[in-house]
Design a protein around this nucleic acid. Structure first.
Lengths: 248, 248
DNA sequence: TGCTTTCGTTCTCCCATACTAAACAAATGT
DNA sequence: ACATTTGTTTAGTATGGGAGAACGAAAGCA
C-alpha cells in the first residue's frame, strides 16, 4: 500500500480485471475483453481458461460469464459476521415499523458496506456496495463513534470526496457535525450521497468501537420533518441499542 | 478443459487458492497460509498485498481477511438473473404456505446452485452452494426436463457420485425415475443428499429448457406421507408454473 | 453453395516476472 | 532482556506468462 499503481502479482491483477469486466458487461467474449483491457487475445484466453478450471467463470453459449462462486464466498463471509446475525431480525422489524428501507452497514477501510437491507425499492446502493463513510448517515454515525485521531487519519488519508451538493467536504464542519451526532447517537443525511434520498442512522458500538450502523432511508419527499427527525430516529437508535445488547 | 490438472495461469490459481484458504480459515496469517498451501512466504505475501490493493482482501489486526467485494459481485450477478427476479415472491409465498424451507436453484454445469431460500433453519446447504444434479429433488427435476442425450452426457462426463445410501447411482434407475418425474413435473428426494432431509421439487421450463427449479425441503420426520406427496407437491408445482409465466 | 469476415483456440519464442531462499524487522511472551 | 514467532523486504534465477501470428470454426451474405 502506498506504492505505485503497479501491484506485486500482475497476473492476479489482470485476472481480476477480467472478472470485473465480465461483471460489468454481464458476460463477454475473448476479443471484446482483449480490446477493452488492452491485453492480447491469448493472454485473455489463458486467464479465462484458468478461471473456468477454478470454477469462477463458465463458458455459456459462446460467451464467458461469472459463475455463482462469488455468491457462495460473499454469502459465506457475511454469514460469519456476528453483527449481521445480531442485526437481522431488528432490521426486519425496523423496516416493518417505519414502512421505509432499513439497512445494516459495517465499516471496511474508508467505506461503509451495505451488508443487509429490507424493503429495497429503487435504492441507489446495492447490498455489497460500499459508500464513503463521510457521505452518508450510517458512515457518519460510525465516524462519530471513533476517536478524534482516527477521524483525522480518515480525512487526511482518504480526503472528503464530494458526492452531491450537500456532501460534507470541510473537515471542520465534519468534526462539528460528528460532535452533535455523538450527543444523540443519531446521524442524518439529507441528500449528501444521493440528492433524492434522506437517511437516519445510529451506530452499533461494542467496547467503544463502532462495528456497524443501522439506517433507515427513503425518498426525500416521504422522509422529512417530524417523521424523519423524531419518530424514525427513535426507532433507529433503539434498534441499534438492541443489536448492541445482542452482541455482548 | 480435459487437460492435466495444471492450469494456464498459475499465479491466478495460487491467488484463488489463497482466497479459498482465507475463506475456510476465516482469516489467516502469511506463515500459516504458506505452510498450508506449500508456497513460500514471500510468494504468499506478494499475492496478499496484490489482493489488498485490488480490494478483495484486507489486513485487519494482523490477520488477512476477505472483504465484502465478493458479496458485491455475488449479489450483483444474482440480481441480474431473470429467474431470480421472477421467483422471489413465489418462493416467499411457498415458504409461508408450507411452513417449510422454500428454495430456488439454477443449473450450473453439473450442479444445482441455490440462488435463494426462505425459511432456512439448519439447512445443510447454504445459498451460493451447489449440489450435484442427480443427488437432489431440484436437480433431478432439471435433468428430467432435458433431452435424453444431455442426460447421458451428464452421466458419462461427471458420473453419479454417491452422497448418501439413497442417492441414485445407477444410470438406468436414474433414467426411469426421470421419466416418472416428467409425467407429473414433480421430483422427490427422500434423503438422497442428506439423510435427514426430504425434498419436493418442480422444474422451471422456458422454451423447453429448464432454467431452474423450485423446491421445498424439511426434516425427514416432518416431511412425509400425504403432506409430502400431495399437499406440498401441488403447491410446489403451481409455484413453478407461475414463475414460468412470469418469465415469458 | 462458396466467399468473406469474425471470433475462439493453438502454437512458438522470448523476455519479464513470479517464485525460492535468506536476511531483516517487529512483535509477542517468558 | 532473551528467545521465538511472524510479517516484510531484498536479491537472483528459472519459469512460465504474454505478444503475435497461424489455424480452425462458425456466422453472415450474395
Amino acid at each position: 500500500m502506498g506504492d505505485t499503481d503497479t501491484v506485486a502479482v500482475q497476473a492476479t491483477a489482470t485476472s481480476f480485471r477480467i472478472v470485473e469486466e465480465l461483471y460489468d458487461r454481464d458476460g463477454s467474449g475473448v476479443t471484446e475483453l482483449a480490446d477493452a483491457l488492452d491485453v492480447s487475445k491469448s493472454a485473455v484466453h489463458n486467464h479465462l481458461s484458468t478461471l473456468c478450471d477454478l470454477g469462477y467463470v463458465k463458458n455459456a453459449a459462446g460467451t464467458y460469464e461469472l459463475t455463482h462462486q462469488f455468491l457462495q464466498i460473499g454469502f459465506g463471509t457475511r454469514e460469519r459476521n456476528p453483527v449481521y446475525h445480531a442485526a437481522r431480525s431488528e432490521i426486519r422489524m425496523l423496516a416493518r415499523n417505519t414502512g421505509a428501507v432499513a439497512n445494516l452497514v459495517v465499516p471496511e477501510d474508508a467505506e461503509a458496506v451495505y451488508l443487509h437491507r429490507i424493503g429495497a425499492r429503487d435504492h441507489p446502493v446495492a447490498v455489497g456496495d460500499g459508500v464513503r463513510l463521510h457521505a452518508a448517515a450510517a458512515g457518519k454515525a460510525i465516524l462519530a463513534s471513533r476517536s478524534r485521531e482516527r477521524v483525522d487519519e480518515y480525512v487526511s488519508r482518504y480526503g472528503l470526496d464530494r458526492e452531491t451538493d450537500r456532501t460534507v467536504t470541510d473537515p471542520a464542519t465534519l468534526r462539528s457535525e460528528l460532535r452533535s451526532i455523538r450527543d444523540r447517537n443519531i446521524a442524518f443525511d439529507r441528500g449528501e450521497l444521493d440528492e433524492n434520498w434522506q437517511c437516519v442512522a445510529s451506530p452499533i458500538v461494542v467496547d467503544g468501537d463502532p462495528v456497524g450502523a443501522v439506517s433507515v432511508s427513503g425518498p426525500s419527499d416521504e422522509m422529512q420533518g417530524k417523521r424523519l427527525e423524531e419518530d424514525t430516529a427513535g426507532l433507529v437508535s433503539s434498534a441499534a441499542k438492541t443489536i448492541e445488547l445482542e452482541l455482548l
